[in-house]
Design a protein around this nucleic acid. Structure first.
Lengths: 156, 156
DNA sequence: GCTTTGACTTCGAGTACTTGAAGTTCCTAG
DNA sequence: CTAGGAACTTCAAGTACTCGAAGTCAAAGC
């Protein structure tokens, strides 16, 4: 069907793979493309399906960083249009990726707290079901304390 | 203007105070009330403004916790409704919470992989900026390998 | 060769807030 | 007592996805 490229092996990805790689859902990738935040992606000749290459992935990663730092889509569009995107802005890329790294770390911390909170609540309801009011009371207090911790972590 | 409280001090709060105490914006409190996630709040007789008491605050705290764990509003509504039923609804509560726990665990796995990916991308751009094409190539390959891993994890 | 399965496509509607407009009401100060 | 401003009210529209329906395309099984 498709003849093999003679020289470089060009890595290509489906939208699902691109989504897994960049952390953005496939629906969001389509949405971003439709509103012009990311450049139009190439299509498979016969299928019409989106085909992402490494360059696309770098671009999406960059946009994902902008989105993660709380930039609105209209601002992102402007920023991307102003040519801040691409290898020439490597320094800027690193800075935003570092920011993204911090955000992911914070997200991970919050996730752990939430997991503990949910686990606590499950214990609580088990205690209630077992009629152990003393233990239920204790766990309820613990959950409340943890809720405060979650809120504190969320503000950071 | 000084009210003569007969016995106990009844704590009452404006929507702004309730927002500050529970961590949810005032607009969200109004929204949650309008869709029935929290019970209708009492109103000032002459002003028509919302007046929150301690019980309201407890309920909102609880809903804020559910929201923080990423639960949908319709699930929250069910959950809160069941909460008033006491121990008899414990089974359903546990089921909902266990579902939430699984979701959070999967999210955590994805997060770790994404952190590694971003770290790799930072190293990559450092290498590009330094003109170290060999290292850049190497890191690019590693990123691709990690991409496969993320792809595998995404299927679970 | 045909059919089924599954991933992709677009498009329009739904979700969970969020913001803005326009209109009260509360409070403070002159 | 009255004027001004902050804070509240509702309601409508905007935002940034997110989902479901209906259709297309390609490889695997019979």
């Amino acid at each position: 069907m498709v003849e093999v490229s003679a020289e470089t092996t060009r890595h290509e990805y489906t939208i699902k793979e691109a989504a897994a790689l960049t952390g953005l859902p496939a629906s969001t990738l389509r949405y971003y493309e439709s509103i012009g935040v990311i450049a139009p992606v190439g299509r498979g000749v016969s299928s019409g399906h989106r085909v992402y290459d490494e360059e696309d992935l770098d671009q999406i990663m960059w946009v994902a960083c902008l989105a993660a730092t709380g930039m609105s889509v209209s601002d992102m569009r402007t920023y991307v249009a102003n040519g801040h995107l691409g290898p020439s802005a490597a320094g800027e890329q690193v800075e935003l990726l570092t920011q993204q790294q911090r955000r992911l770390a914070s997200e991970a911390r919050q996730l752990v707290l939430r997991q503990r909170y949910v686990a606590l609540k499950i214990d609580y309801w088990h205690a209630v079901a077992a009629g152990d009011d003393g233990r239920a009371e204790l766990l309820s207090g613990e959950a409340r304390h943890l809720a405060d911790e979650i809120k504190r972590a969320g503000r950071s």
